[in-house]
Design a protein around this nucleic acid. Structure first.
Length: 335
DNA sequence: AAACCGGGGGC
DNA sequence: GCCCCAGGTTT
């Protein structure tokens, strides 16, 4: 029995019941795929439900204000996904009359839809024979075929895509196969402690038979994270609080924050204020943020004056980075 | 080709 | 502390 059929058979007996598996509506599938990019199912599922109920159609999403979409996305991370989601919804409404394109290459032209998501939508919703290559697929294929090419190198990306495309060729249900190989990676051929003793491919798996399962897939090291020191100014005037929107190309673009002073070493000695709460260390995948909060008594020393003054109650309707949302919930809601 | 972009969870 | 998670865009 060939690889593709074995996987689909396993999938039919072992797949999880996930909300987006109850439909082939491309809008639902698209939402689920974008939400789940670099995100665990357990974290993303509640966002999927929220988006489907808040924006039932692509037109609803397109017509919503970007700030509302970002608020819906609050806490999920990689906020460019939310900005692109909103952009894409408008693209689909204006360029395609609200109907999703059916083919891989047209899907690729939409903002935020890359090779993975285009393959997922076209195969699941429209039975196109395009293989998905996500983190699960890299892991499963690298082990079964014993491929040591780094998965985050150009050569590796090309090699795994070619292999995956060869394996899906002739598959009658490419959407099921794509989900099957990902599911196998998620449930069986896991990063740590894979279930090799009960694996349906153990007799032919190169990694298993050469005792290299734990070494695969190969991934070249990321560069070390950078430290950043952020001092947020908590400033009241007439019972309102100052906020600003992050607009530059940096982390958290489009989200709100309090007036910010960033320094090289954390010594924001220009501040004349009272430190609120203890310093917070907030970890991103590529940055280590050291955050302090200062209640400012004398606003005349502010670095600039283009802030928005909002009621404290208003804070809950704006999208903040999760570390600031936590500060708000803990310190500002009961004033 | 490499850098950049979040937050959470497993081990 | 390190790695990974239904990746994509920009430089």
């Amino acid at each position: 029995m060939n690889f593709e059929i074995q996987l689909r058979l396993w999938y039919s007996e072992n797949k999880r019941s996930l909300p987006w598996r109850k439909t082939k509506n491309p809008y639902n599938i698209w939402l689920s795929e974008v939400i789940m990019q670099q995100t665990r199912i357990a974290q993303g599922t509640k966002y999927y439900h929220h988006f489907i109920s808040t924006y039932p159609t692509v037109k609803d999403l397109a017509n919503a204000p970007l700030d509302a979409v970002l608020k819906s996305w609050e806490g999920l991370g990689y906020y460019s996904r939310a900005r692109n989601l909103h952009l894409a919804a408008n693209q689909i409404v204006t360029l395609f009359h609200g109907n999703f394109p059916k083919d891989y290459s047209t899907l690729l032209s939409i903002k935020g839809i890359g090779p993975y998501t285009a393959a997922a939508i076209s195969s699941i919703c429209f039975k196109e024979e395009i293989a998905v290559v996500d983190g699960n697929v890299y892991r499963v294929l690298s082990r079964i075929y014993g491929i040591e090419t780094p998965i985050n190198s150009s050569a590796g990306i090309k090699q795994f895509n070619q292999l995956a495309q060869k394996l899906i060729k002739g598959c009658p249900l490419p959407g099921d196969y794509n989900q099957a190989i990902m599911e196998y990676g998620a449930l069986h051929c896991t990063p740590k402690n894979p279930k090799c003793n009960t694996c349906i491919f153990s007799s032919t798996c190169v990694a298993y038979n050469t005792n290299t399962v734990e070494k695969l897939p190969v991934k070249t090291k990321a560069k070390p994270v950078k430290d950043r020191f952020l001092s947020y100014l908590i400033l009241f005037k007439d019972n309102k609080i100052a906020v600003e929107k992050r607009t530059h190309k940096d982390i958290w673009q489009g989200l709100f924050q309090f007036p910010l002073i960033e320094t090289e070493n954390g010594n924001a000695t220009v501040l004349k204020g009272t430190k609120m709460a203890e310093p917070v260390k907030h970890l991103l995948s590529h940055q280590r943020l050291h955050i302090t909060f200062w209640q400012i008594k004398h606003p005349e020393q502010l670095p600039k004056t283009t802030y928005h003054w909002v009621d404290v109650d208003m804070l809950q309707t704006l999208a903040f980075p999760i570390v600031l949302k936590r500060f708000i919930d803990a310190n500002l809601l009961h004033l």
